[in-house]
Structure formats: C-alpha cells, structure tokens
C-alpha cells in the first residue's frame, strides 16, 4: 500500500469519527444517537483493519470482528431502552429525559 492510500484511509476514519461525535452531540432523537454511535464504531473498525493489513497481524481483524459483535449487542440493548423509554415516558427525545437533573 502506498503511503498516500494509508493516509487517506486514516483521514477517512478520523472524519468518520468526528462526524459520529457531532451526531452524538447534536441530535435529539434517541435512535439518531445510536446511528451516530455506529458511525464511531465503524471508524474504529476501519482503522483496525487498515493497520492489520499494514502490519500483517491478525489481531487487527479479530478486533474489528469483536467490534462488530459488540456493536450488535449495544444496538440491541440501546434499542430496547429506547422502546421502553418511548413506552413509559412517551418520548423519544434525549433531552426530555432529565431525571438526573441536579
């Protein structure tokens, strides 16, 4: 792989990550937050796979595999929470849930 390609992919994963952070901070809908989180996770997985290729090590790919698996779990639980939230609080917007208000 050429260095240009490598830096391109790295930049891409940076940008994905930052977009995910933006989404996490800026979006109101709970599920939108989950989508943003998926972006972040993907950015990380991409990074792992890139360096796995660069260094010829299997751990990177394995880790990316784990990320996908955990993303699945997290999505499941998160969505369960959202659905129960929708049922009980009758809202899906994160800023409506302010029970932790100090």
């Amino acid at each position: 792989m050429t260095p240009a390609a490598v830096s391109l992919v790295v930049m891409l994963s940076n940008a994905l990550f930052c977009l995910g952070v933006y989404g996490l901070l800026a979006r109101r809908h709970a599920i939108a937050l989950l989508l943003a989180i998926e972006l972040i996770l993907n950015a990380a997985a991409l990074n792992f796979v890139l360096f796995s290729r660069l260094l010829g090590h299997a751990h990177g790919q394995a880790f990316a595999l784990f990320i996908i698996a955990l993303a699945a779990c997290e999505a499941v639980v998160g969505l369960a929470i959202v659905i129960s939230l929708a049922r009980s609080a009758k809202t899906v917007f994160a800023d409506d849930v302010n029970l932790l208000r100090g």
């Binding site: 930052c18 977009l19 952070v21 933006y22 901070l25 800026a26 979006r27 109101r28 939108a32």
Partner: peptide, 19 residues
C-alpha cells in the same frame, strides 16, 4: 420533524476541533 440538534454550533465546533 426531527429537529436536529440542540447545539449544532457548539457540537460542530467541538468535532471540528477534534478533527
């Protein structure tokens, strides 16, 4: 309408800084 975001400016600034 899913009114996006509460603080787009701040969030944008922060993520741009991070980038």
């Amino acid at each position: 309408p899913d009114v996006s975001s509460r603080q787009p400016a701040v969030a944008g600034a922060v993520s741009l800084t991070l980038f």
